[in-house]
Nucleic acid binder design. Structure first.
Lengths: 336, 336
DNA sequence: CTGAAAGCGCTTACAG
DNA sequence: CTGAAAGCGCTTACAG
């Protein structure tokens, strides 16, 4: 229709190679007028780029995690749209067999790269990494593997929380966490200890009476059990930092049951700022994690990696922010 | 390798046409031995089936809705896997322009059909429906359009809730809801009125003093405002049914603030059974909606429709189940 | 029951 | 700067 060959149209479409401005405009007009869209499958077949990226997440995380990982997915999708890339999603169980249960799209090369959100079986990551597929991890990492990742700044978040409490003249601060194998959870505990140390309260943070760690997926129950265990040993506990909002919710429930006033007797601080943090009683002070942004960054990094596979690996640390609500400060409004 | 033509291999792969058992086995063995996977893009190009289905959800629902829709997505993914189909996900805003903002995969025919989860702009559905793409709606419908859908049994759920309360000798039962335009929310209100009517309590359910309806997205705030409004007119309210767990949570918070004992003075029942229903204080009695299963059913229906486009439209009603927790029955354990 | 051949709609060297 | 041609890896009538 524009009186040129398909080669030329292809060049206009991709923006590569040389086309005279005149021809380019003419072709573009026809494209616009007829709302022409190149067929993806033909493009894929001819170019060996799929224009898809895989998004792998454990079924547990997708269904249970309080819209944490689904917000990351949302961010990934928003950014993918900007680049006209599709996201193929695949859930995996935590007890998978390799290679039987690996996501299909990795078997048939249907994606150009993969985002892995949250914790998945390590052997899956190793397997994919060995197959030389570009990967970006979000809120996960594996020590001995150099894989690009997007991580929230867990240590700074914990430091802000500790400082917030110390500024109120509080010293006897405990910690409740779980799933010590998840890197973020571990970093949060380390951040707690480090910040306490810096404030001259290392003795407390190093005293096992003051913390409770459970090596399993964090649940509300973890929080309940954890705070109860600490209070048995430290009856005059003034505050508790939690590995995430889920455990913090458990602490809140248990403290309520024990008749301890929050924040009067014990202050509670969570981590993540998931949607129900604002509806607990009292509303939960917590460290806000920009989940959508993490998804956006992950997609950017992955597309970058796909474009330039040779560049070295990198980790992006996403800043977090303490959100102060009723669970850590004296009441002043009517929101209790 | 098996000494046959590619045509024959193709026939073995697809299971169509006639291939002798002998040949079939020989080919299959080579396929297995070499772990051969047909390239999707080539297949798509040659067959004009993409093997993809689109999953459309509003960005609000994906990120805010307490893992309700992400569990539906999970179900869809699990079933898609069984059929070796990929899910392409796309979020849409509630204020989109047609055709500028319609999901990309519908523009370039990259999917064979579409699942729409929850409420999205009606004009989007109309547009897609007119383009003759197979569609299945989940927890949504549009009155004047005959589109396949998977809906939870809202009326029965409400009936179970009403019965549960009446069985305890309670009569003064109110309702708090929102987003009257969402079909499920409307059905729940209708279910409440109908069940009350059947129990001879129609006068109460028809009295506007006893219910609060808000024409917007349901939030925790809706619940707070709603229960407060009802209590002003009906000081001796005995129970409140809610359009969903989110509004129920708001009711719980407000009742607590007003010093009303739950379930002693007022009983509260939600709907959906999302993950935080069990961590409210007291734990929330609610109607369990099998979200994963709804996603599974939607995928099944869609693939069916793609296979046999000529068959008439259908609606699948998914059964629900009342889950009784502390917010509607006298305390008997220590879980308060 | 099986094979030869065309064709799906693009991209990409290559030649000019 | 532009076009002719090959080729990506399948599927599907069609012939035998």
């Amino acid at each position: 229709m524009a009186g040129v060959s398909t080669s030329t149209v292809s060049l206009v479409l991709s923006g590569k190679g040389y086309v005279s401005d005149d021809t380019r405009e003419r072709v573009q007009k026809v494209i616009d007028d007829y709302n022409y869209r190149p067929l993806r499958s033909a493009r894929q077949l001819a170019s060996d780029r799929t224009g898809n990226i895989g998004f792998i997440i454990s079924d547990i995380h997708l269904s249970k995690s309080e819209a944490f990982y689904s917000r990351i997915l949302l961010g990934a999708e928003l950014e993918a749209r900007n680049h006209d890339v599709y996201i193929l999603i695949s859930t995996v169980g935590m007890n998978i067999e390799i290679p039987k249960d690996i996501p299909r799209f990795t078997q048939s090369r249907d994606v150009d790269g993969i985002i892995i959100a949250g914790s998945v079986p390590k052997k899956l990551v190793r397997y994919l990494h060995n197959r030389d597929i570009p990967i970006v991890l979000v809120d996960f990492n594996i020590e001995d593997l150099k894989i690009d990742s997007v991580i929230m700044d867990n240590r700074s978040g914990m430091k802000a929380a500790v400082t917030h409490l110390i500024d109120q003249g509080i010293e006897r601060i405990g910690f409740v966490g779980g799933s010590y194998h998840h890197p973020s959870i571990r970093e949060r505990f380390e951040g707690y200890q480090l910040a306490m140390e810096r404030a001259g309260l290392g003795q407390i943070a190093r005293n096992p009476d003051f913390y409770y760690l459970e090596d399993s997926e964090t649940t509300v129950e973890t929080g309940k059990v954890g705070i109860a265990a600490i209070l048995k040993k430290v009856t005059d506990l003034q505050a508790v930092l939690c590995a995430n909002d889920t455990t913090a919710t458990g602490c809140l429930l248990q403290l309520n049951k024990l008749g301890k006033d929050v924040p009067g007797e014990v202050k509670v601080v969570g981590f993540d700022d998931v949607n129900y943090a604002a509806i607990t009683q009292p509303p939960l002070t917590t460290v806000h994690v920009p989940k959508v942004r993490m998804g956006v960054e992950a997609t950017k990094m992955l597309l970058d990696k796909i474009e330039k596979p040779e560049q070295g690996y990198q980790t992006r640390l996403i800043p977090v922010e303490l959100i102060i609500r009723g669970s850590s400060v004296p009441v002043n409004g009517q929101d209790r």
